[in-house]
Amino acid sequence: MSTTATPHSIVAEGLTKRFGDFVAVDAVSFHVNKGEIFGFLGANGAGKTTAIRMLCGLSIPTSGKGTVAGFDVYTQTERIKRNIGYMSQKFSLYEDLSVTENIEFFAGIYGLSRDRIRTKREELIAKLGLVQEADKLVGALPLGWKQKLAFSVAVFHQPQIVFLDEPTGGVDPVTRRQFWDLIYEAADVGITVFVTTHYLDEAEYCDRVSIMVDGRIAALDTPTELKKQFGTGTMDSVFYELARGAKRGGA
């Protein structure tokens, strides 16, 4: 699908978003490699959500440059949307539709053929162990199952990149690990994973991690390198070190 030959899935150069006087995202530059699991960390209000919205084509940047899957974040937002998957902690699925109906709906939106949807749907339901629940409304499922399903739906159309916004909040420890197995699986087939989380042990599972503070990227490297840089043994301390200096708690 991709029309360009950039080696990077996501490129941001000086990407900025202002709301009036308030600079939500302040000249952020980074790139995400193809097939990478990229952790996008930051305190509440640091500007993560605004940044993700720009990358997903939901919001036009105020200034700076950016491409996602090779498409421009200003002019080609609809082509970006064709090549990404997206899941957030809330509202990823329609709670008043059943498991099957949700899969069919989201797969259909991306124009997958009916036969393809049918076979892949059966596979997916079997893989997630939801055979019994296939016709249940999603609203009635436990959160952990919902999130696994939401992720599978987000990568169902084999996008180049999948954006995950706090996918594991409130999920039990075992299911959380199963969720990460799904992420690894996706990364293995070459899907770039862009994930935000508040569980710092999950940061360890990422190839590289960026930490956003007050609208800027304060650190970006592999977890091992980051820990080395800050001279500590855990990502927890790294994060705490960076985020406690934040000035913008209430934004």
């Binding site: 930051g42 305190a43 409130g170 508040h198 927890d236 994060f239 705490y240 985020a243 406690r244």
Partner: peptide
């Protein structure tokens, strides 16, 4: 009831 769900680690602390 779940006062810290969705809250970043620093604020949780």
């Amino acid at each position: 009831d779940e006062p810290t769900t969705g809250v970043d680690p620093v604020s949780r602390k």
